[in-house]
Design a binder for these strands. Structure first.
Lengths: 355, 355
DNA sequence: TCCCGCCGAGACAACGCTGTCAATTTTCAT
DNA sequence: ATGAAAATTGACAGCGTTGTCTCGGCGGGA
């Protein structure tokens, strides 16, 4: 027995093919009784409509294309998880389209792939979501899309973003509350708007706590572990009195780099130096000591993005909500009170005792 | 101007639709001259055949389904990269199908998704590739597939695997060569055959170096960071004389757990303890000190898998090669000579000096 | 010179579904 | 009961490609 077609269902349910089609597509002008009968047959035959035929006839492919840059495996996978789940429920499939955001031929590649795949819509992840050229391309080609964490928060109809700025402010306040007055900051890659925005939150936090912004405590990183190492060197290889007592890195990888440099200098963490990151990637809890960081609900955000896109595709009215997702501060072992509060000795002794 | 169809191409090239189809599908019974003309028009119109129409008419969907378990983001992404690249070149698209290998309804889910998506073939990644039920399902449904790193290396026509056992033996020999005689081993999750196989390599290595297998130095892990922590505790919280001087963990995450415990105990690495991992995930170079480990060329392996699958789909003859990919030992900072060789003091002094 | 076979190319009918529009049945106000 | 409007269903023609079959023309052996 081969795969059942719509004709088989129609025959067994003794209705026309068109009626089966209506049932599949949730058209409301079908009598409940008829619908029931058809559904029973569909289940009995384990019938699934052919995506090809649907695509050819209607003009939908039931395919969503996910544009992502391969720089962060964890980020990509998390987004994917959220998107696939939502799309699957709506009988859409997800196509992968890896890109290199630095490639000069990016737009051509994307264009070609769009034409080839005939995807109904596109979800764009950072840092691709920041690119104006890409946005322009999609708009020009009239392809429905939703962006995740784009640079500007305008037209939220087509974007989902996180409260990076707010959460960074909260984290900074937290550190200040522990007595830190010299809080270093490692800025993220300026190409990644969302990450770069975190710097704003840091400044907000300082301001709220009445701390002055010290330019010597701020260094520019590029999101990689290596750049974290480099930045940490700049911050830490200075006279002790000028050293920051806490370093806030814009992402966990750079924070890991900071940890490595601190270890190399023989600094105890968190007794001599507090280190905090952002993202809560698995790495954060797999370094020693485990990083205090900020968690973004990436799968939830991605699911939300998919939901928005599907609504757009179905032409459903716009629901002005769910565009911002909230982050959570994750307190682990890499931060503590400022050594200047004189609490350090006690803390260290406690550690010794329990180890 | 809307999207060009095969009719437009046929009209402009002044040939029949069928001839254009022949050109697209590389049918050889087309005069070179005619083929050239058609190709020119195709390029000029930027024509791409409609996957839906091709799928409906022929019986191929030009879709490859990637079955993966979400446990390891890096692994999944790396495989994806290799697969997408190869498939894209062959004008196939990749569909994502995330699975939970522990789910009792796994086979039903897979079956349903296969029927829904009509994928032409499937690539299965570990640990799913180990599952007999899944293999049986695919065979029964007569779906072309290729498995990556399955448990048994039989029928290599449909699988690609790494030389885990050999590389682990080499790494073990390496450690022995540095004077280590008590080399601990953290076995991987028995559900992941490939990972569990690494234990065999460790034993091979010991044998070659004339070292006895000491059961007290072997613990069972489950691939996670936490299980690495647990295993390290078992290995290290014993009298110093009985401690291993080196620990070989079956993957990097567990190795990171070992590092954390060692740090907690105040052990210097690699002076007091060498730690090595397996996989060379990004984590390996982002912990402190950076892990000596074994790198698998995952994207290459995945590309190879895709290639084998495409060949199967095209009905091409079987080429008995390229099923094994070679790993490389990555020497970084987490290993060194055995402290029992008395080299430790010198090494430590050097470190202090340079820090 | 003639016929056979092969090469290159076209005609036509699917493939399984949806859109459009027409036909039928039901509902409801009179 | 009666028509008109509304609800429900069906007939039919594509959608853009490929498979099958057919046809014309050309080279080569008898």
């Amino acid at each position: 027995m081969s795969i059942a077609t719509i004709r088989d269902v129609a025959a067994q349910a003794r209705v026309s093919i068109k009626t089966v089609s209506r049932v599949i597509n949730n058209v409301k002008t079908v009598k409940p009784h008829t619908r029931e009968r058809v559904l029973r047959v569909i289940r009995k035959l384990d019938y699934h409509p052919s995506p090809s035929a649907r695509g050819l006839s209607g003009s939908r492919s039931y395919l969503i294309s996910l544009l992502y840059d391969v720089t962060c495996a964890y980020y990509a996978t998390s987004v994917l998880t959220g998107v696939v789940e939502t799309c699957r429920a709506a009988h859409y499939q997800v196509l992968m389209q890896p890109c290199d955001y630095t490639s000069p031929s990016l737009t051509e590649e994307v264009t070609r792939n769009l034409r080839q795949s005939r995807a109904d819509g596109v979800i764009v992840t950072p840092p691709l979501s920041d690119m104006k050229t890409l946005k322009a391309l999609l708009e020009e080609q009239n392809v429905p899309f939703v962006r995740i964490a784009p640079a500007e928060h305008a037209d939220d109809r087509r974007s989902v973003y996180t409260d990076d700025r707010e959460s960074c402010a909260r984290m900074t306040e937290q550190l200040a509350g522990l007595g830190h007055t010299r809080i270093g900051f490692v800025i993220g890659n300026p190409d990644h708007a969302a990450v770069a925005h975190r710097f704003q939150g840091y400044r907000d936090g300082l301001r709220k706590c009445g701390l002055a912004l010290d330019k010597k405590l701020i260094v520019q990183g590029y999101n990689s572990y290596d750049s974290g190492v480099e930045c940490a060197r700049k911050l830490l290889q200075v006279p002790v009195a000028k050293r920051p007592t806490a370093i806030f890195a814009s992402n966990d990888e750079m924070a890991a780099g900071v940890l490595a440099v601190a270890h190399g200098l023989g600094l105890a963490i968190p007794e001599d130096l507090s280190v905090v990151g952002f993202d809560d990637v698995p790495l954060a809890s797999q370094v020693w000591p485990a990083l205090t960081t900020i968690r973004q609900p990436i799968p939830a955000m991605a699911a939300q993005a998919a939901e928005l896109l599907l609504r757009q595709l179905r032409g459903e009215p716009y629901d002005r909500s769910g565009h911002v997702v909230e982050s959570a501060l994750m307190f682990r072992q890499s931060h503590g009170p400022s050594p200047e509060r004189g609490m350090i000795a006690r803390a260290r002794n406690q550690r010794r005792a329990t180890a």
